[in-house]
């Protein structure tokens, strides 16, 4: 079976550590091995490049150098980590002066930029496969009417080809459909949640994330599904400002996998918007239905 290098990133070791646990449980079920990057560091997110582009490239080059030594493809479930690592790898591979600059800064570490970086949707599609996923479903989640929310950074890495449509991605739709959820069409798949503004301007993330949650409600969904820890947190936090939007939990994609594979997830208590109704609606499928 396949083994991937794994870059959890800062969010998955702190505010979204339950996403890390969920992801590990699901990938272990499919026998996808994860080897966590030895002593990885922060990708610098949006803060480093706003200060200085070279700083962003050096921060990412450090993780890329560690990953390249393993020869494995890298899984980065956080959208910021994925986008920054991937963009830097391509730049290091294609631009001599960037490659020289990061190698000089990080010496004796050495980096080529040859690393293949995958997000969690690509990981499921490429290393597990839709047929295997559909065949592994043990619990009925047909009462879930979900809107897949991709956020901005997952498909939009300037200068890097996207594995999905940039305006209307469908990779997560395909996975959710295979798991047995009802995928509700909507227009806000890639609208911005407000990103890192929560600390500096909470009203702004409330407004932007609130708009997305209101659209999910209008579309008739009873759950939003995402893969990005910052998107999940921003949408989840709307519960503190928008009482009218109560009742639509924001699940990580891997949590939907857990519901369909195992019938429940042990970490649902970490959701700010309760997912109890969703969990309660999961049905045990008959023994002969695969």
């Amino acid at each position: 079976m396949i083994t991937l290098s794994y870059f959890p990133g800062c969010s998955l070791t702190s505010s979204s550590s339950f996403y890390d646990r969920s992801l590990r449980r699901v990938l272990a079920f499919y026998e996808v091995g994860l080897r966590e990057l030895e002593d990885w560091s922060c990708c610098g997110a949006a803060a480093a490049p706003a200060m200085r582009q070279e700083l962003s490239d050096v921060l990412n080059a450090r993780n890329i150098a560690i990953a390249e030594k393993s020869g494995l493809h890298l899984l980065a479930p956080c959208s910021a980590c994925y986008a920054r690592t991937r963009a830097s790898a391509l730049k290091i591979a294609g631009d001599r002066s960037t490659r020289d600059m990061v190698n000089e800064a990080l010496s004796p570490m050495s980096v080529k930029g040859s690393l293949e970086v995958r997000n969690i949707i690509e990981t499921f599609l490429q290393y597990v496969g839709v047929e295997k996923i559909a065949a592994s479903v043990a619990y009925g989640i047909g009462s879930m009417r979900v809107v897949p929310y991709y956020g901005c950074l997952l498909t939009r890495i300037m200068g890097a080809p996207s594995s999905d449509d940039v305006e209307d991605p469908s990779g997560m739709d395909v996975l959710l459909d295979a798991l047995g959820a009802v995928v509700v069409p909507w227009q806000f798949k890639t609208e911005c949640c407000g990103a890192g503004s929560t600390a500096t301007d909470r009203d702004r993330t409330t407004r932007l994330s609130g708009r997305i949650m209101a659209m999910a409600k209008k579309a008739g969904a009873n759950a939003v599904v995402t893969t990005c820890p910052l998107c999940q947190l921003n949408l989840d936090l709307t519960t503190h400002a928008r009482g009218d939007l109560a009742g639509i939990p924001v699940l990580f994609l891997t949590e939907v996998f857990e519901l369909a594979l195992f019938g429940s997830t042990p970490d649902s208590k970490h959701h700010l918007i309760s997912m109890a109704d969703i969990e309660g609606s999961v049905e045990i499928l008959g023994g002969d239905s695969a």
């Binding site: 800062c10 070791t13 702190s14 505010s15 979204s16 550590s17 339950f18 002593d39 990885w40 560091s41 200085r52 070279e54 700083l55 050096v58 921060l59 450090r62 800064a105 990080l106 947190l233 989840d236 936090l237 208590k269 970490h270 959701h271 700010l272």
Partner: peptide, 27 residues
């Protein structure tokens, strides 16, 4: 957020923090 475990309370120090810290400080 605290109650639901949505804030990372502890900070992890990576082993290579001195080397990385020096690079960041310089940049």
């Amino acid at each position: 957020m605290l109650r639901k475990g949505r804030i990372g309370l502890s900070s992890h120090n990576i082993r290579g923090r001195k080397e990385l810290g020096a690079i960041i400080r310089r940049m």
